[in-house]
Design a protein around this nucleic acid. Structure first.
Length: 462
DNA sequence: GCATGATCATGC
DNA sequence: GCATGATCATGC
């Protein structure tokens, strides 16, 4: 069958694909799709390959357009409340073969062979709309800039090293910066062999972090979504140093210094009372202009947490996460839960400690949660879900005092559940009315990391 | 002095 | 109007 494009000519493929922009699959190949077994309800990527590009969806180890080494990928956008578009999810690439990766260099890796050139079809996700009717917004080829590729190469080496250490089962997305190793499979529990351990490991795929996909979308649409300042100015620097090296190096100069001393040393004046004071101070130390975002952190989905330690080294506060909806948690599985997706990220902790009334910079740490502690967080999450499912939120203590059954600090050393609301009347609806109070709503709650956990496992751990 | 529940302040 | 990070109040 003759194709409407030439597989040996990259430009021909791109030109043909560009015709998708502004259209839906129904508009460009609706008749074929409706006549097929998909009947308009298939997965967007599969329909795109089969009915627009006319090849069978496959999971071969070569790129989809192997003749020109270009891989076809589609990815959804979501619209924010402020009408701006962002990537809805990470971009999942090829499966990581644990047996092969240990023998591959980055240059000859599956990642490079399949994903160094990507033809991206970016479409608008709308809840309830069939994939055949979603509007295609941007179509273009993506190649990684040299600096990003150096960072991705280091990410690849990090993943490879974990497999070499017999720790494929402990891999986490938070291990790396731009290139992640995300779980993948129909069954999330699907397990695979690894070469240097008898423990089976979850199947994982190379993936680009959601923040990195946002960066790609902004670049391709030529509509900058914000102003960015860079920590790394050239591929040569990216080759020589990791993001971690650079960040630690910038902070180290100020270890032991009080905030007023750091401010005067930086020769800047930031309002110490302002809400974003610590975020501004971090940017200033990193040499990023205050109205800019940190390019490398945005692309890496890094969460910065500033912690103020008391003189006895216990953080003054626990660390909160966004409130969860009671109606959502009962529908979620742990693997897909919002809480887990936070704990899978990479964190940058900045520790200050009180000395009398002054805060002194102690140190900074990149951190992501070890898998054993994630199991502990899972236990907290499951207990919370059970309580909401059973409608057993409130209980009586000593016959009169009302307390919640939610997992407290005593339940787990890692995490607990606590109110996070404007006041006690600031509520979310309950899927099942509370047995004791008969109420169909309850004060907004969120998951917190225990301050003692932050002290013992993040601050004090070398 | 800490755990738990409650609330505040800011900025988008 | 609400999310988010920060802080307060009380009782053990």
């Amino acid at each position: 069958m003759s194709l409407p494009y030439n597989r040996n000519d990259k430009k021909s493929i791109i030109d043909y694909s560009k015709k998708l922009e502004g259209k839906t699959l129904r508009q460009v190949c609706g008749n074929e799709i409706l006549a097929s077994s998909f009947s308009g309800k298939g997965n967007f990527g599969q329909m795109l390959e089969k009915f627009y590009f006319h090849y069978e969806p496959n999971s071969k180890s070569e790129a989809d357009f192997s003749e020109v080494g270009m891989e076809l990928k589609s990815t959804p956008l979501k619209q924010l409340k402020n009408k701006n578009y962002r990537s809805k999810e990470r971009l999942v690439l090829s499966i990581i073969d644990y047996l092969k990766i240990v023998q591959q260099s980055f240059e000859e890796s599956d990642f490079m062979r399949k994903s160094s050139s990507i033809l991206l079809v970016i479409y608008e996700h709308e809840k309830g709309l069939n994939a055949i009717d979603t509007k295609i917004k941007i179509v273009d080829e993506w190649n990684f800039p040299a600096t990003d590729l150096e960072i991705i190469k280091k990410d690849f080496e990090t993943i490879k090293q974990k497999v070499l250490d017999g720790k494929a089962h402990e891999i986490s997305e938070g291990d790396t910066f731009y290139l992640g190793a995300c779980t993948k499979g129909v069954n999330k529990d699907s397990l695979r062999d690894q070469p240097f351990s008898k423990t089976k490991a979850k199947q994982r795929a190379y993936s680009l972090k959601q923040g990195y996909v946002n960066h790609i979308i902004a670049s391709l649409s030529r509509e900058p979504v914000g102003n960015y300042g860079k920590l790394i100015q050239s591929p040569e620097i990216a080759k020589k140093y990791t993001i971690e090296d650079i960040v630690l190096d910038k902070f180290k100069k100020y270890y032991g210094m009080s905030i007023p001393d750091i401010l005067s040393s930086l020769k800047i004046d930031i309002n110490e009372k302002a809400k974003g004071f610590f975020a501004s101070l971090t940017k200033a130390i990193l040499g990023i202009e205050l109205n800019n975002e940190i390019d490398e952190f945005e692309k890496s989905d890094i969460i910065i947490k500033t912690v103020r330690l008391k003189e006895n080294s216990l953080p003054k506060e626990d660390i909160s996460f966004p409130t969860f909806k009671f109606e959502d948690i009962v529908k979620e599985d742990w693997e897909e839960s919002d809480f887990k997706s936070f704990l899978d990220k990479k964190f940058l902790f900045v520790f200050y400690q009180f000395e009398n009334d002054l805060l002194v910079l102690r140190n900074v740490k990149f951190w992501n949660m070890p898998s054993t502690d994630k199991n502990e967080a899972k236990r907290v999450w499951i207990r919370t879900k059970e309580i909401v499912e059973n409608g057993s939120i409130v209980k009586l203590m000593k016959g009169t005092i009302r307390v919640t059954n939610f997992p407290s600090k005593k339940f787990s050393k890692v995490s607990h559940v606590r109110p996070h609301a404007l006041n006690a009347n600031d509520c979310f609806p309950l899927p099942i009315a509370d047995e004791l109070t008969k109420s169909k709503e309850y004060t907004k709650h969120s998951f917190w990391l225990n301050n003692s956990y932050v002290r013992d496992e993040i601050y004090l751990k070398s």
